[in-house]
Design a protein around this nucleic acid. Structure first.
Lengths: 151, 151
DNA sequence: ATCTTTGCAAACTTTTTGCACCAAT
DNA sequence: ATTGGTGCAAAAAGTTTGCAAAGAT
Protein backbone atom coordinates (compact mmCIF):
# COMPACT_ATOMS: atom_id res chain seq x y z
CA UNK A 1 0.00 0.00 0.00
CA UNK A 2 2.75 2.42 -0.90
CA UNK A 3 0.68 4.50 -3.24
CA UNK A 4 -1.36 7.59 -2.51
CA UNK A 5 1.01 8.89 0.13
CA UNK A 6 0.40 12.49 -0.71
CA UNK A 7 0.02 13.11 3.03
CA UNK A 8 0.71 16.66 4.00
CA UNK A 9 3.44 17.30 6.48
CA UNK A 10 1.85 18.95 9.48
CA UNK A 11 3.01 22.54 9.82
CA UNK A 12 2.99 22.48 13.54
CA UNK A 13 0.51 20.24 15.28
CA UNK A 14 0.89 22.03 18.57
CA UNK A 15 0.06 25.38 17.00
CA UNK A 16 -2.79 23.93 15.11
CA UNK A 17 -4.24 22.37 18.22
CA UNK A 18 -3.91 25.67 20.06
CA UNK A 19 -5.75 27.44 17.29
CA UNK A 20 -8.57 24.96 17.36
CA UNK A 21 -8.86 25.10 21.11
CA UNK A 22 -9.08 28.86 20.75
CA UNK A 23 -12.05 28.41 18.51
CA UNK A 24 -13.69 26.45 21.31
CA UNK A 25 -13.07 29.37 23.63
CA UNK A 26 -14.49 31.82 21.10
CA UNK A 27 -17.67 29.80 20.94
CA UNK A 28 -17.97 29.68 24.71
CA UNK A 29 -17.56 25.94 24.77
CA UNK A 30 -15.78 24.43 27.71
CA UNK A 31 -12.26 23.31 27.26
CA UNK A 32 -12.01 19.95 28.92
CA UNK A 33 -9.15 17.51 28.99
CA UNK A 34 -11.25 15.07 27.00
CA UNK A 35 -11.90 17.56 24.23
CA UNK A 36 -8.30 18.60 24.18
CA UNK A 37 -7.17 14.98 23.88
CA UNK A 38 -9.76 14.30 21.23
CA UNK A 39 -8.76 17.28 19.12
CA UNK A 40 -5.15 16.34 19.60
CA UNK A 41 -5.90 12.85 18.29
CA UNK A 42 -7.62 14.36 15.28
CA UNK A 43 -4.78 16.77 14.60
CA UNK A 44 -2.19 14.04 14.90
CA UNK A 45 -4.04 11.32 13.04
CA UNK A 46 -2.74 10.21 9.70
CA UNK A 47 -5.39 7.61 9.12
CA UNK A 48 -9.12 7.96 8.82
CA UNK A 49 -10.44 7.61 12.31
CA UNK A 50 -13.69 6.02 13.41
CA UNK A 51 -15.22 6.92 16.75
CA UNK A 52 -13.66 3.90 18.42
CA UNK A 53 -10.27 4.59 16.82
CA UNK A 54 -10.46 8.02 18.36
CA UNK A 55 -11.54 6.61 21.69
CA UNK A 56 -8.51 4.33 21.66
CA UNK A 57 -6.22 7.24 20.84
CA UNK A 58 -7.66 9.37 23.61
CA UNK A 59 -7.51 6.49 26.06
CA UNK A 60 -3.80 6.14 25.47
CA UNK A 61 -3.46 9.36 27.43
CA UNK A 62 -6.62 9.21 29.54
CA UNK A 63 -7.74 5.62 30.06
CA UNK A 64 -11.06 6.41 31.67
CA UNK A 65 -12.54 8.34 28.78
CA UNK A 66 -15.61 6.50 27.67
CA UNK A 67 -16.66 5.84 24.08
CA UNK A 68 -19.98 7.53 24.68
CA UNK A 69 -18.15 10.66 25.74
CA UNK A 70 -16.21 10.56 22.50
CA UNK A 71 -19.46 10.42 20.56
CA UNK A 72 -20.93 13.28 22.54
CA UNK A 73 -17.80 15.36 22.16
CA UNK A 74 -17.65 14.72 18.46
CA UNK A 75 -21.23 15.80 18.13
CA UNK A 76 -20.55 19.07 19.92
CA UNK A 77 -17.39 19.71 17.93
CA UNK A 78 -19.35 19.03 14.81
CA UNK A 79 -22.05 21.50 15.76
CA UNK A 80 -19.31 24.00 16.43
CA UNK A 81 -18.05 23.47 12.91
CA UNK A 82 -14.68 22.06 13.95
CA UNK A 83 -15.26 18.46 12.96
CA UNK A 84 -17.04 16.59 10.18
CA UNK A 85 -17.93 12.99 9.68
CA UNK A 86 -18.19 10.94 6.52
CA UNK A 87 -20.28 7.83 5.98
CA UNK A 88 -18.26 5.10 4.32
CA UNK A 89 -21.19 2.78 3.76
CA UNK A 90 -21.98 -0.39 5.73
CA UNK A 91 -22.60 1.65 8.81
CA UNK A 92 -19.13 2.94 9.46
CA UNK A 93 -18.36 6.61 9.79
CA UNK A 94 -15.05 8.41 10.06
CA UNK A 95 -14.24 11.78 11.56
CA UNK A 96 -11.83 14.53 10.72
CA UNK A 97 -11.19 18.20 11.28
CA UNK A 98 -13.36 20.49 9.19
CA UNK A 99 -10.44 22.21 7.59
CA UNK A 100 -9.31 18.99 5.96
CA UNK A 101 -11.51 19.21 2.92
CA UNK A 102 -11.49 16.34 0.50
CA UNK A 103 -13.66 13.69 -1.00
CA UNK A 104 -13.34 10.00 -0.11
CA UNK A 105 -13.28 7.11 -2.53
CA UNK A 106 -13.69 3.79 -0.74
CA UNK A 107 -12.66 0.53 -2.36
CA UNK A 108 -15.16 -2.13 -1.46
CA UNK A 109 -12.70 -4.94 -2.12
CA UNK A 110 -9.73 -3.87 -0.04
CA UNK A 111 -11.19 -1.11 2.09
CA UNK A 112 -8.65 1.47 0.99
CA UNK A 113 -9.78 5.05 1.31
CA UNK A 114 -8.49 7.36 -1.39
CA UNK A 115 -8.63 11.09 -0.80
CA UNK A 116 -9.30 13.23 -3.80
CA UNK A 117 -9.67 17.00 -4.09
CA UNK A 118 -13.10 18.58 -4.03
CA UNK A 119 -12.58 19.70 -7.54
CA UNK A 120 -13.28 16.17 -8.78
CA UNK A 121 -16.83 16.49 -7.51
CA UNK A 122 -17.49 20.06 -8.55
CA UNK A 123 -18.86 19.01 -11.89
CA UNK A 124 -21.33 16.65 -10.28
CA UNK A 125 -22.30 19.35 -7.80
CA UNK A 126 -23.17 21.86 -10.46
CA UNK A 127 -25.01 19.31 -12.59
CA UNK A 128 -27.25 18.25 -9.72
CA UNK A 129 -27.80 21.83 -8.70
CA UNK A 130 -28.76 22.87 -12.19
CA UNK A 131 -30.98 19.92 -12.95
CA UNK A 132 -32.65 19.29 -9.59
CA UNK A 133 -31.86 22.22 -7.35
CA UNK A 134 -30.08 19.70 -5.16
CA UNK A 135 -27.07 20.90 -3.17
CA UNK A 136 -24.72 18.01 -2.49
CA UNK A 137 -22.84 17.84 0.77
CA UNK A 138 -19.77 16.24 -0.71
CA UNK A 139 -17.82 15.62 2.47
CA UNK A 140 -20.62 13.73 4.07
CA UNK A 141 -20.72 10.66 1.89
CA UNK A 142 -18.10 8.44 0.36
CA UNK A 143 -17.97 7.33 -3.23
CA UNK A 144 -17.94 3.52 -3.26
CA UNK A 145 -16.38 1.36 -5.94
CA UNK A 146 -13.20 -0.51 -6.77
CA UNK A 147 -9.68 0.84 -6.78
CA UNK A 148 -7.21 0.38 -9.59
CA UNK A 149 -5.42 -2.50 -7.88
CA UNK A 150 -8.53 -4.49 -7.14
CA UNK A 151 -10.04 -4.19 -10.56
CA UNK B 1 -54.95 -3.63 4.49
CA UNK B 2 -57.96 -5.63 3.34
CA UNK B 3 -57.61 -8.87 1.51
CA UNK B 4 -59.20 -7.48 -1.66
CA UNK B 5 -56.56 -4.79 -1.69
CA UNK B 6 -53.72 -7.21 -1.19
CA UNK B 7 -54.79 -9.29 -4.14
CA UNK B 8 -54.99 -6.37 -6.51
CA UNK B 9 -51.66 -6.82 -8.24
CA UNK B 10 -51.29 -5.20 -11.66
CA UNK B 11 -50.99 -7.68 -14.47
CA UNK B 12 -47.61 -6.48 -15.69
CA UNK B 13 -46.27 -6.88 -12.18
CA UNK B 14 -47.39 -10.48 -12.27
CA UNK B 15 -45.50 -10.95 -15.52
CA UNK B 16 -42.46 -9.25 -14.17
CA UNK B 17 -42.51 -11.39 -11.05
CA UNK B 18 -42.80 -14.52 -13.18
CA UNK B 19 -39.79 -13.47 -15.21
CA UNK B 20 -37.73 -12.86 -12.12
CA UNK B 21 -38.74 -16.15 -10.57
CA UNK B 22 -37.65 -17.76 -13.80
CA UNK B 23 -34.25 -16.27 -13.34
CA UNK B 24 -34.10 -17.99 -9.97
CA UNK B 25 -34.89 -21.26 -11.68
CA UNK B 26 -32.23 -20.64 -14.30
CA UNK B 27 -29.66 -20.18 -11.59
CA UNK B 28 -30.74 -23.36 -9.81
CA UNK B 29 -31.85 -21.44 -6.78
CA UNK B 30 -34.79 -22.80 -4.88
CA UNK B 31 -38.09 -21.11 -5.32
CA UNK B 32 -39.57 -20.79 -1.88
CA UNK B 33 -42.69 -19.00 -0.79
CA UNK B 34 -40.58 -16.54 1.13
CA UNK B 35 -38.52 -15.62 -1.89
CA UNK B 36 -41.60 -15.35 -4.03
CA UNK B 37 -43.26 -13.05 -1.50
CA UNK B 38 -40.10 -11.00 -1.13
CA UNK B 39 -39.68 -10.53 -4.85
CA UNK B 40 -43.35 -9.73 -5.12
CA UNK B 41 -42.91 -7.03 -2.49
CA UNK B 42 -39.99 -5.62 -4.42
CA UNK B 43 -41.86 -5.68 -7.70
CA UNK B 44 -44.88 -4.01 -6.17
CA UNK B 45 -43.10 -1.46 -4.04
CA UNK B 46 -43.40 2.16 -4.95
CA UNK B 47 -41.29 3.44 -2.11
CA UNK B 48 -37.69 2.71 -1.25
CA UNK B 49 -37.76 -0.32 0.96
CA UNK B 50 -35.52 -1.10 3.89
CA UNK B 51 -35.08 -4.68 5.06
CA UNK B 52 -37.70 -4.25 7.74
CA UNK B 53 -40.09 -2.55 5.33
CA UNK B 54 -39.75 -5.61 3.17
CA UNK B 55 -40.21 -7.91 6.12
CA UNK B 56 -43.44 -6.12 6.98
CA UNK B 57 -44.65 -6.41 3.38
CA UNK B 58 -43.86 -10.11 3.27
CA UNK B 59 -45.44 -10.70 6.65
CA UNK B 60 -48.73 -9.25 5.41
CA UNK B 61 -49.04 -12.45 3.40
CA UNK B 62 -46.89 -14.79 5.52
CA UNK B 63 -46.80 -13.65 9.11
CA UNK B 64 -44.15 -16.11 10.26
CA UNK B 65 -41.39 -14.94 7.95
CA UNK B 66 -38.59 -13.71 10.11
CA UNK B 67 -36.51 -10.60 9.54
CA UNK B 68 -33.33 -12.63 9.51
CA UNK B 69 -34.75 -14.70 6.68
CA UNK B 70 -35.40 -11.53 4.76
CA UNK B 71 -31.79 -10.52 5.20
CA UNK B 72 -30.54 -13.92 4.11
CA UNK B 73 -32.85 -13.99 1.15
CA UNK B 74 -31.84 -10.53 0.07
CA UNK B 75 -28.22 -11.54 0.27
CA UNK B 76 -28.81 -14.54 -1.96
CA UNK B 77 -30.87 -12.55 -4.41
CA UNK B 78 -28.14 -9.98 -4.46
CA UNK B 79 -25.49 -12.59 -5.21
CA UNK B 80 -27.72 -13.84 -7.99
CA UNK B 81 -27.76 -10.36 -9.44
CA UNK B 82 -31.48 -9.84 -8.99
CA UNK B 83 -31.34 -7.32 -6.18
CA UNK B 84 -29.14 -4.42 -5.14
CA UNK B 85 -28.89 -2.37 -2.01
CA UNK B 86 -27.97 1.25 -1.53
CA UNK B 87 -26.51 2.87 1.58
CA UNK B 88 -28.35 6.06 2.41
CA UNK B 89 -25.97 7.14 5.16
CA UNK B 90 -26.60 6.96 8.92
CA UNK B 91 -26.73 3.21 8.77
CA UNK B 92 -29.84 2.74 6.68
CA UNK B 93 -29.88 0.70 3.52
CA UNK B 94 -32.60 0.23 0.96
CA UNK B 95 -33.16 -2.57 -1.50
CA UNK B 96 -34.51 -2.74 -5.01
CA UNK B 97 -34.54 -4.93 -8.07
CA UNK B 98 -31.37 -4.80 -10.10
CA UNK B 99 -33.14 -3.75 -13.24
CA UNK B 100 -34.23 -0.53 -11.62
CA UNK B 101 -31.10 1.41 -12.30
CA UNK B 102 -30.87 4.89 -10.95
CA UNK B 103 -28.90 7.04 -8.62
CA UNK B 104 -30.26 8.25 -5.27
CA UNK B 105 -30.05 11.77 -3.91
CA UNK B 106 -30.99 11.90 -0.25
CA UNK B 107 -32.04 15.14 1.40
CA UNK B 108 -30.61 15.26 4.89
CA UNK B 109 -33.21 17.73 6.06
CA UNK B 110 -36.43 16.06 5.04
CA UNK B 111 -35.29 12.57 4.17
CA UNK B 112 -36.68 12.68 0.66
CA UNK B 113 -35.04 10.33 -1.80
CA UNK B 114 -34.78 11.66 -5.33
CA UNK B 115 -34.10 9.22 -8.13
CA UNK B 116 -31.98 10.49 -10.96
CA UNK B 117 -30.78 8.71 -14.09
CA UNK B 118 -27.33 7.15 -14.19
CA UNK B 119 -26.36 9.62 -16.80
CA UNK B 120 -26.01 12.32 -14.16
CA UNK B 121 -23.15 10.37 -12.64
CA UNK B 122 -21.46 9.26 -15.81
CA UNK B 123 -19.26 12.29 -15.89
CA UNK B 124 -18.02 11.66 -12.38
CA UNK B 125 -17.47 8.02 -13.22
CA UNK B 126 -15.23 8.76 -16.14
CA UNK B 127 -13.33 11.47 -14.29
CA UNK B 128 -12.49 9.17 -11.39
CA UNK B 129 -11.62 6.36 -13.75
CA UNK B 130 -9.30 8.53 -15.78
CA UNK B 131 -7.59 10.22 -12.86
CA UNK B 132 -7.38 7.41 -10.30
CA UNK B 133 -8.29 4.21 -12.06
CA UNK B 134 -11.22 4.05 -9.66
CA UNK B 135 -14.43 2.40 -10.85
CA UNK B 136 -17.40 3.78 -8.97
CA UNK B 137 -20.30 1.56 -8.09
CA UNK B 138 -22.89 4.24 -8.46
CA UNK B 139 -25.92 2.31 -7.28
CA UNK B 140 -24.30 1.37 -4.03
CA UNK B 141 -24.07 4.75 -2.38
CA UNK B 142 -26.39 7.70 -2.11
CA UNK B 143 -25.47 11.28 -2.75
CA UNK B 144 -26.27 13.27 0.37
CA UNK B 145 -27.21 16.93 0.48
CA UNK B 146 -30.22 19.23 0.56
CA UNK B 147 -33.14 19.25 -1.80
CA UNK B 148 -34.52 22.33 -3.51
CA UNK B 149 -37.34 22.74 -1.01
CA UNK B 150 -35.18 22.52 2.08
CA UNK B 151 -32.56 24.93 0.90
C1' DA C 1 -32.90 -38.72 0.06
C1' DT C 2 -30.39 -34.87 -0.17
C1' DC C 3 -29.14 -30.51 0.44
C1' DT C 4 -30.94 -25.80 1.11
C1' DT C 5 -33.74 -22.66 3.48
C1' DT C 6 -36.14 -21.13 7.46
C1' DG C 7 -37.53 -19.74 12.34
C1' DC C 8 -35.85 -18.63 16.44
C1' DA C 9 -32.78 -16.87 19.80
C1' DA C 10 -28.87 -14.73 20.60
C1' DA C 11 -24.80 -12.14 19.43
C1' DC C 12 -22.64 -8.25 17.24
C1' DT C 13 -21.63 -3.37 15.72
C1' DT C 14 -22.32 1.27 15.89
C1' DT C 15 -24.53 4.95 18.08
C1' DT C 16 -27.65 7.06 21.57
C1' DT C 17 -29.62 8.08 26.11
C1' DG C 18 -30.84 8.44 31.34
C1' DC C 19 -28.87 9.53 35.38
C1' DA C 20 -26.01 10.75 39.18
C1' DC C 21 -21.62 12.84 39.89
C1' DC C 22 -17.85 15.85 38.65
C1' DA C 23 -15.54 19.79 36.56
C1' DA C 24 -15.01 24.37 34.07
C1' DT C 25 -16.33 28.82 34.16
C1' DA D 1 -22.69 28.63 42.28
C1' DT D 2 -24.08 27.43 38.08
C1' DT D 3 -24.08 25.21 34.00
C1' DG D 4 -22.48 21.89 31.26
C1' DG D 5 -19.52 17.55 30.71
C1' DT D 6 -18.48 12.82 31.96
C1' DG D 7 -18.58 7.75 33.41
C1' DC D 8 -21.33 4.04 33.49
C1' DA D 9 -24.93 1.00 32.28
C1' DA D 10 -28.34 0.08 29.39
C1' DA D 11 -31.00 0.64 25.23
C1' DA D 12 -31.60 1.43 20.35
C1' DA D 13 -31.15 0.24 15.52
C1' DG D 14 -29.46 -2.57 11.93
C1' DT D 15 -27.42 -6.78 10.71
C1' DT D 16 -25.38 -11.43 11.29
C1' DT D 17 -24.97 -16.22 12.96
C1' DG D 18 -25.54 -21.17 15.13
C1' DC D 19 -28.60 -24.63 15.26
C1' DA D 20 -32.32 -27.87 14.71
C1' DA D 21 -36.48 -28.42 12.13
C1' DA D 22 -38.98 -27.79 7.78
C1' DG D 23 -39.05 -27.55 2.87
C1' DA D 24 -37.58 -27.83 -2.22
C1' DT D 25 -35.69 -30.60 -5.57
Amino acid sequence: MSRAEAEKIPIDDVDRLAQIVDRLRTKSLRITSTRRALLSALVGSKRHMSASDLAAAVQAAQPDVHLSTVYRSLEILEQAGLVDHVHLGHGRAIYHLSDELHQHLVCESCGTVIEVPDEDLSNLASTLDRRYGFAIRPHHFAVLGRCAECR
